[in-house]
């Protein structure tokens, strides 16, 4: 052990709010990065006992095994409905829902839209990887035009299958929504920006400004049938030109 490795030289370590359990996610999956960022924010803000998370159905259904905070698991797509209940029962607590694109943009569109329109003071973390992960690679509403999946083997044809859905732009039009941003976790710089966005959203929630959504454009190496590095390249070259990064809506005067 060299003289560099000692507590006073520590620059970065796993947040204590993230459990030691080995995550079940595939190697290189963006879920792990977002779990880690959320737990870093919780640790830095010192709100481990004051935050309640809602997990979805999908790859991240077992998020409660990894985040050392109070969590509940919702029925498929209904995380925002459950989040509404939790926030109204415990208005002094922070509440966030953690949902993928199959959960939020397909089966849960109704619950999400209405929770946003009511201006529920909670945060939704929306992981958008453009494909159904847990059920092994079917076409999602957010799948890019022309992308090949198991249910669109010749590529997504917009004539019969419709266009990819930009949920964040849709939600930003609703008056109850305070903050909508789109981030990615494919590079160290984007990871830093994503963490800042999560922290900002929780601060806005504390101020009671309204519904906040942080969309994270993520990868899916297993179902895109490529290596994690190729999956991140796909995010950079194919997804980010369509799902443009940046703040879509910020509260007035912020």
């Amino acid at each position: 052990m060299s003289d560099i490795v000692c507590p006073e030289n520590l620059v970065y370590k796993k947040p204590s709010t993230l459990k030691d359990a080995i995550m079940h996610y595939c190697p290189g999956c963006g879920h792990g990065v977002v779990h880690k960022l959320m737990m870093e924010v919780v640790e830095e803000m010192g709100i481990q006992n004051d935050i309640i998370g809602i997990t979805p159905v999908g790859c991240s259904v077992f998020a409660y095994n990894y985040m050392d905070i109070d969590m509940e698991q919702a029925a498929h797509g209904r995380a925002c409905a459950l989040g509404t209940a939790v926030k109204r029962l415990y208005p002094e607590k922070y509440v966030f829902t953690y949902q993928g694109d199959g959960d939020l943009a397909a089966i849960g569109t109704c619950e999400t839209m209405h929770a946003a329109n009511r201006g529920e003071k909670m945060l939704t973390i929306f992981i958008n990887n453009g494909i159904y992960g847990m059920t092994s690679g079917q076409m999602a509403p957010t799948t890019l035009e022309g992308a090949k999946t198991t249910t669109s083997p010749y590529g997504r044809d917009v004539e019969t299958m419709g266009y990819p859905l930009r949920i964040s732009e849709l939600i930003a039009n609703l008056p109850g929504v305070a903050y909508v941003t789109r981030q990615a976790v494919n590079t160290p710089a984007n990871v830093r920006k994503c963490k800042k966005a999560l922290k900002t959203a929780l601060e806005y929630q504390k101020q009671g400004l309204g519904y906040c959504m942080v969309e994270v454009v993520s990868n899916c190496p297993s179902n895109n049938k490529c290596t994690p590095l190729e999956a991140n390249k796909f995010v950079e070259e194919q997804m980010l030109p369509f799902y443009k990064l940046g703040d879509i809506k910020v509260p007035e005067g912020k």
Binding site: D3, I4, V5, C6, N9, L10, V11, Y12, K13, K14, P15, L18, I22, M23, Y25, P27, G28, C29, G30, H31, G32, V33, K36, V185, N186, T187, P188, V191, R192
Partner: peptide
């Protein structure tokens, strides 16, 4: 150089970084 870029992108949070 202890820039922590590796630790930031690590999905499983396995990397601890020290810098002197």
């Amino acid at each position: 150089t202890g820039c922590a870029s590796c630790a930031l992108v690590c999905p499983d949070a396995v990397i601890t970084v020290y810098r002197k």
